[in-house]
């Protein structure tokens, strides 16, 4: 079947099989490998992308479901060479180690900001509760997101 959707601002028309997952469409067909597969069952959040403003696990969504939708992946966060404030804060606070959870973590935080530009700490925790990080212990991640809110 053919679907038509917007990926990181770009209109895209693609022919796909009905059983293809969104993550496979992104990684295999569009070569957007920033989105990672960690568990395939929606537990780890490494594959988080934004569909129509909401964070979703792309391993649990069929590709055909994004027909007529607006999809944002980690590759869509920076404007050219300029990193977004959120990305810059991930660097500043050392919210990254191996980098495998990072794209999903960024997308969950970005989706939160789309909905609520001034979230509380509790709301930040809720937003990333489905994103597992095995390296950092979360503290610098929360710091990075919190300081994006406060503009520090």
């Amino acid at each position: 079947m053919i679907i038509n959707f917007k990926i990181n601002g770009k209109e895209t028309l693609i022919n796909l099989t009905k059983n293809k997952r969104l993550i496979d469409l992104l990684r295999d067909d569009l070569k957007l490998t920033g989105t990672k597969e960690g568990c395939s069952i929606g537990e780890c959040g490494a594959c988080t992308v934004i569909v129509n403003g909401k964070a979703v696990n792309s391993c649990l969504v069929l590709a055909q479901q994004v027909d007529e939708c607006d999809v944002i992946t980690v590759e869509g966060l920076a404007e050219g060479n300029k990193l977004s404030e959120l990305q810059q804060n991930f660097l500043k606070y050392g919210a990254i180690q191996c980098g495998f959870c990072t794209p999903g973590m960024l997308m969950s935080a970005y989706a939160l900001f789309l909905e609520n530009p001034t979230p509380s700490r509790e709301e930040i925790e809720t937003a990333i509760e489905g994103n597992l990080c095995r390296c950092t212990g979360y503290k610098p991640i929360i710091q990075a997101i919190t300081s994006t809110v406060s503009g520090e």
């Binding site: 490998t33 920033g34 991930f90 660097l91 990254i96």
Partner: peptide
């Protein structure tokens, strides 16, 4: 800062 992290936040690390 760890400069290697820049690729990570851009989703460009392989």
């Amino acid at each position: 800062k760890n400069y290697d992290w820049i690729q990570h936040v851009r989703g460009e690390s392989l």
